[in-house]
Simulated scan of single mutants.
Amino acid sequence: MDSARQGKEAAKATGGVNLADMAYRTLLEMILDRRLRSGELIVEDRLATALSISRTPLREALVRLASEGLIRKEFNRPYRVREVSSREYFQSMRLREILEGEAIATAAARIDPVRLQAMKAEMLRLRDEPQVRFEDHWAADEVLHTMIAEASGNEVMAQIIRDLRVTTRLFELSGLPSRIRPDCLEHLEVIDALADGDPAKARAAMESHIRSLAKDVLNDIARA
């Protein structure tokens, strides 16, 4: 496993302050960049050796990842990266369309304009960047959708949206091609609608974005 050097460097960087946090960040990155793939078993001994840590902080990291819905553990079985079926994915996307449409309509009058402009600048940068790192795209996507959900003021809805996004992200990480440029263009439409302070326009932009993503995924599956 090529994470051995990365784990040692991360341990040096933290000065041993919090090995569980270091392990969590490393494992999260391994899931997001597909070094730990959907359905893959997580062998604790091997990971602990690769990260140069004991199993105690590793287990703390695994519990945290499980609480966020990224990995699962069955009785008397090792942890496994959570698998998401296409059925669960499309059902989750339909719920996201409904809930994130409601969240953005509520957020239109509440969102911080300074943060919104900073988000627009980042999306423009990603749009115009010839070679966008997958991780940078995911990070910007996460910031925007989370910012909108939280700006709705409905904490229960925001948490459900976060959970649904974990589900859909895991499915999209299973090998589907990325759609960075279309995402950036759709995100810019969402941001402009929010900047206008128009709840109906913002809702329409968000719902269109989520339907567009689901449609592209469906087409990718059909071509496979």
Score class of each variant (00 low, 15 high):
residue 140 A to C: 08
residue 140 A to L: 07
residue 141 D to M: 14
residue 141 D to P: 10
residue 141 D to C: 13
residue 142 E to K: 14
residue 142 E to D: 14
residue 142 E to L: 12
residue 143 V to G: 10
residue 143 V to P: 06
residue 144 L to P: 06
residue 145 H to F: 04
residue 145 H to Q: 15
residue 145 H to T: 10
residue 146 T to F: 01
residue 146 T to W: 11
residue 146 T to L: 14
residue 147 M to K: 07
residue 148 I to H: 02
residue 149 A to L: 06
residue 149 A to R: 07
residue 151 A to E: 02
residue 151 A to Q: 00
residue 152 S to W: 04
residue 153 G to M: 07
residue 153 G to L: 08
residue 153 G to H: 10
residue 154 N to R: 07
residue 155 E to T: 15
residue 155 E to I: 13
residue 155 E to S: 15
residue 155 E to K: 11
residue 156 V to L: 12
residue 157 M to R: 06
residue 157 M to D: 12
residue 157 M to I: 03
residue 158 A to Q: 07
residue 158 A to H: 00
residue 159 Q to F: 10
residue 159 Q to R: 02
residue 161 I to A: 02
residue 161 I to N: 05
residue 161 I to P: 02
residue 162 R to I: 04
residue 162 R to E: 02
residue 162 R to K: 10
residue 162 R to Q: 05
residue 163 D to L: 03
residue 163 D to R: 06
residue 164 L to V: 05
residue 164 L to Y: 04
residue 165 R to D: 01
residue 165 R to T: 11
residue 165 R to Y: 10
residue 165 R to V: 09
residue 166 V to I: 11
residue 166 V to L: 04
residue 166 V to G: 02
residue 166 V to Q: 01
residue 166 V to W: 01
residue 166 V to E: 01
residue 167 T to E: 09
residue 168 T to P: 03
residue 168 T to R: 02
residue 168 T to A: 11
residue 169 R to E: 08
residue 169 R to P: 09
residue 170 L to N: 03
residue 171 F to A: 11
residue 171 F to Q: 01
residue 171 F to T: 02
residue 172 E to H: 05
residue 173 L to S: 06
residue 174 S to P: 06
residue 174 S to I: 02
residue 174 S to N: 06
residue 174 S to H: 04
residue 174 S to Q: 08
residue 176 L to Y: 07
residue 177 P to K: 15
